[in-house]
Design a protein around this nucleic acid. Structure first.
Length: 112
DNA sequence: CCCCTGACGGGCG
DNA sequence: TCGCCCGCCAGGG
C-alpha cells in the first residue's frame, strides 16, 4: 500500500519529524520541508501526509499550514483535529491556531 | 502521453 | 490587507 517503495527516505523523514513534534506544539508543512531541505516544497509534505492519514502513530493533527490554519481537518472528520489540539492545550478559533508563534515548533531551531 | 488536482507557500498587483 | 497566479512533484483519469 505504501508508496514508500518509491520514496522511502523522503516520506519516512517527514513522518519522523512529525512524530518528534512535542505535545501541545504544532509545526507547518513549510517548516518541515525547509528542515528536510525538500526543494519540492511544502506541497510534497502535504502530499506525504495525505498518504499517511491511515497511520494512527503519526500526530498529523499537529501539522498546520504557515498561517496556523487547520487545512487538513477535513481528513479527520468534522472537528476531530481541533478536538485533538485543544486536548493538548492548543487554543483553536475558527479553524486557526491561536498564539501560533508561541506553539509553533521549528525543527531547525528547537531540534538539536 | 496529456491534463487536472492537491493536508502549501511566496510573490505581485 | 486581500486575492490571484505560479512553481513544485507525483498520481490518477
Amino acid at each position: 500500500m505504501l508508496k514508500s517503495e518509491t520514496q522511502p527516505n523522503k516520506f519516512d523523514d517527514i513522518y519522523q519529524v512529525v512524530r518528534l513534534i512535542p505535545q501541545g506544539r504544532v509545526t507547518s508543512y513549510g517548516a518541515i520541508a525547509e528542515y528536510l531541505g525538500l526543494k519540492s516544497g511544502a506541497r510534497f509534505v502535504g502530499w506525504a501526509m495525505n498518504a499517511c492519514h491511515a497511520d494512527p502513530t503519526i500526530p498529523a493533527h499537529r501539522v498546520v499550514n504557515s498561517q496556523g490554519l487547520l487545512t487538513g481537518k477535513f481528513y479527520f472528520g468534522e472537528n476531530r483535529m481541533q478536538q485533538l489540539l485543544e486536548n493538548e492545550g492548543i487554543m483553536v478559533k475558527n479553524d486557526k491556531v491561536l498564539n501560533f508563534n508561541q506553539v509553533l515548533w521549528r525543527p531547525f531551531l528547537e531540534l538539536i
